[in-house]
Write a protein that binds this DNA or RNA. Structure first.
Lengths: 224, 224
DNA sequence: TGTTAATTGTGAAGCATTTCACATGAGTAT
DNA sequence: ATACTCATGTGAAATGCTTCACAATTAACA
């Protein structure tokens, strides 16, 4: 339906392409608010600091969504991209660990905007269990496995200390959750078929640090 | 001492290599705690789910740190990597926007561990200005430019609403700060020579979403 | 209705990154 | 000493990603 039919060989789509699709989605939402009817690959590229060819190639992996001479219909393309990313629906998400980062994530607007609904919170701290965060009552982590299953949770966000993250994830895996966003700074072990993405804010600061000490100009050719 | 001298052609180092160096650094810290004297590219690769060749190639861009037949000396390699990344020193960081994410970042352990010291906080909310977060008094954002300069801030973390992020960043740029970690979901415009990295947690959830709807798991999660 | 201008979609070329494969050097044991 | 083993460092091959360049297609307008 969305992918050109008669293509039996599912090409591997690169991680970079998917990340760019996320960015296109965000920009398309903005363009929609700005009342653009259509947008060219040129304009989209300009806003994302990419080449027009890159934009067209990314989209072409999934179909032909534009009109030659005109560009892409904004609303329609946005719908297609959200379909491709799988965010044309609601995902039921649980957050494990209501500490500093966890609390921030409960209120993180970008999640809700894109269909990620945090519907359960877990913690092991008696002072937090039973308390209310943005309308959600914190559950005891003792019941993690059963509650994840009973509530048909599809994704979890792990925001617990590194020391217990693997233990928690083992339980999450037993509850047959197949997608994990991990904030703990460790390499989690999961069986095949379970997807893990790591979020580590220090890595981006480290990149900045590297860039600064090497005097790389962001655009350009190395050394000043 | 660090980079092979007499190499006039500074090869461009890829973003992936830098990110992997961050990961090596973290793993080397762990290995050090586990009392490993040396580590082979094979072992490092296993822990990071990479190939040994990848590890060796990454390191080889910066010098020869290993001993044939033996591997790499853990403590020494860790020191070299931290030198390469520029985290063998303290960076003076300011955090702008003490909201949900901002507050979480003040307490984020990975920053301190790697030399990123948040020494200033800014907000525009009168109720927050003057309050104390982990020993730091929140400053009025009105004084942003002068205080950034007076306190010799080298990096800023922008955790303000998207609507005001560009305005804030313009001030930050005027204060001659050259490195920005941006949590606002917009594409910031900065002049050449200013480094920006974006952090958007929703993007990783979107990647998970994509992975789930495309790549069915081996055991088959019943989705049609 | 024909001509012009715009912009897509896409093979192919051009780069960049990863992996291979092996010579090389270091340590160890006899 | 010599032989043997291990694991690095690195050109070269393989793979993957981005950009180019242009035919194809559409809208606008005379």
């Amino acid at each position: 339906m969305d992918i050109p039919s008669g293509s039996p060989t599912k090409k591997r789509i690169s991680e970079s392409t998917i990340h760019r699709l996320s960015r296109y989605f965000r920009t398309l939402s903005l363009l929609e608010k700005e009342n653009f009817e259509t947008v060219s690959s040129k304009e989209l590229a300009k806003r994302e600091k990419l080449t027009p060819a890159q934009v067209r190639k990314d989209l072409s992996f999934f179909g032909s969504f534009g009109t030659r001479g005109l560009g892409y219909p904004v609303a329609e393309l946005k719908a297609k991209v959200s379909r491709i990313l799988g965010i044309d629906r609601i995902w039921r998400v649980a957050l494990i660990g209501v500490g500093n980062i966890g609390s921030a994530m409960v209120s993180y607007k970008e999640f809700i905007k894109q269909g990620f609904h945090i519907v359960k919170l877990f913690d092991n701290d008696q002072r937090k269990i039973g308390s209310n965060h943005k309308g959600i009552i914190v559950s005891d982590i003792k019941n993690l496995r059963t509650e994840l299953q009973d509530d048909r949770i599809e994704m979890v966000i792990v925001a617990v200390p590194a020391t217990v993250a693997q233990y928690i994830v083992d339980v999450v895996v037993k509850a047959e959750v197949k997608a994990i966003l991990n904030f703990a700074p460790i390499n989690l072990k999961v069986p095949p078929g379970v997807h893990v993405r790591n979020e580590n804010m220090a890595m981006e600061l480290e990149y900045l640090s590297f860039a600064m000490v090497n005097h790389h100009s962001p655009k350009g050719i190395g050394k000043a």
